[in-house]
């Protein structure tokens, strides 16, 4: 029964998203919903490495934009269909994760964090100098025509992102409940002890980095069709790095549900705040909430809820 439940929830979410495209008329809601699901994927991906293993990735924007630009190149060169773009975006970002991880994870974890901090800026420099994808001024992409049962292509993208969110959450759930997750948790608690007990720490860390980077690239791949103007500043925006890290920290890092709770809360709040107050102020609020949670509620919302529930039971 416990095994069937996540699958049931997954199918439920997808059906709800599909039904929503038939019922909801307001087009803004699809754009907003797309962003929320995109952040569910990014936060879940970040948490697979950051939450389970304790290695902080500051370069989400780099992995995300690499997925987006892989898709852009595929559109420009071959007019490749969306599924191909998503798979390719995920693969390229996974390879990046493997490379960075291999060079830095053998040493102390903090070098990985530092390398990822510089990574986004360096990738952005490459893209800015690459004329094929429009350099600094970007390139416009034409969305394909809509096809049934979707009334518009944005509705289709909304549904695709919902599906990707479900897939990433299921991947996180599987990792958490398998030997991989136990190995990662052992690394988080005490890496030396884990190594001594025969846990293949380097291989597990690399695996987590690859899976995490892959999902970040996957989240970025539908980006060109979503924005229709791909340019470096928005693709490499620091918002991705901050949000993908703040969402799990606020929701709770030790379970798969934490990043989802954080992503839905924080990105919904941001969607409302960007419309009602300025977007800079909105980022300042994210920063302050992040620091407040790290200082005062290190277990996140899920941890707080669990503690409250435990107290009631006791």
């Amino acid at each position: 029964m416990k095994k069937g439940l996540p699958l049931l929830i997954a199918v439920g979410v997808l059906l709800a998203a599909l039904v929503a495209t038939r019922l909801v008329g307001n087009r803004y809601l699809y754009f907003a919903g797309y962003v929320i699901f995109q952040y569910v994927v990014l936060a879940t991906a970040w948490n697979i490495l950051g939450g389970y293993t304790g290695y902080v990735n500051f370069g989400t924007a780099g992995f995300f934009a690499l997925g987006a630009y892989t898709a852009t190149v595929l559109i420009l060169a071959f007019k490749a269909p969306l599924p191909v773009q998503i798979v390719a975006g995920g693969l390229v970002s996974a390879v990046l994760g493997l490379g960075i991880g291999y060079l830095t994870l053998r040493l102390r974890g903090v070098f990985f964090s530092i390398a990822t901090l510089a990574l986004a800026l360096v990738l952005q420099t490459f893209v800015m100098n690459w004329e094929y994808v429009g350099g600094a001024k970007g390139v416009s992409i034409i969305r394909p025509a809509a096809f049934p049962p979707f009334a518009s292509y944005v509705e289709f993208l909304f549904f695709v992102m919902a599906a990707l969110a479900v897939v990433s959450a299921m991947a996180a759930w599987w990792i958490e409940n398998s030997w991989v997750g136990r190995g990662l948790a052992a690394i988080r608690d005490n890496e030396e002890a884990a190594e001594c007990m025969g846990v293949p720490t380097l291989r597990l860390k690399l695996l987590a980095t690859v899976v995490s980077g892959c999902f970040m690239g996957v989240a970025g791949a539908p980006f060109p069709y979503y924005v229709t103007l791909v340019e470096p500043v928005s693709a490499f925006s620091l918002d991705y790095a901050v949000n993908s890290l703040a969402m799990p920290m606020i929701g709770g890092t030790t379970t798969w549900i934490g990043p989802i709770v954080g992503a839905i809360l924080l990105s919904t709040a941001q969607q409302v705040a960007t419309v009602t107050i300025s977007s800079e102020l909105n980022l300042l609020i994210v920063g302050i909430v992040l620091v407040a949670f790290v200082l005062l509620a290190p277990q996140g919302i899920v941890g707080l809820v669990q503690r409250l529930a435990g107290r009631r039971r006791a």
């Binding site: 950051g50 304790g54 902080v56 500051f58 974890g109 903090v110 964090s113 620091l238 901050v242 890290l245 703040a246 920290m249 890092t253 800079e280 102020l281 980022l283 300042l284 994210v286 920063g287 302050i288 992040l290 620091v291 790290v294 200082l295 290190p298």
Partner: peptide, 24 residues
Amino acid sequence: GEESLRGLVFFFGLLFIIEVALLL
């Protein structure tokens, strides 16, 4: 002994707050 994950995130948040405050 929480500095590896939360300490890093703390400094990242600090970085972000100061930068956005200067921007505002």
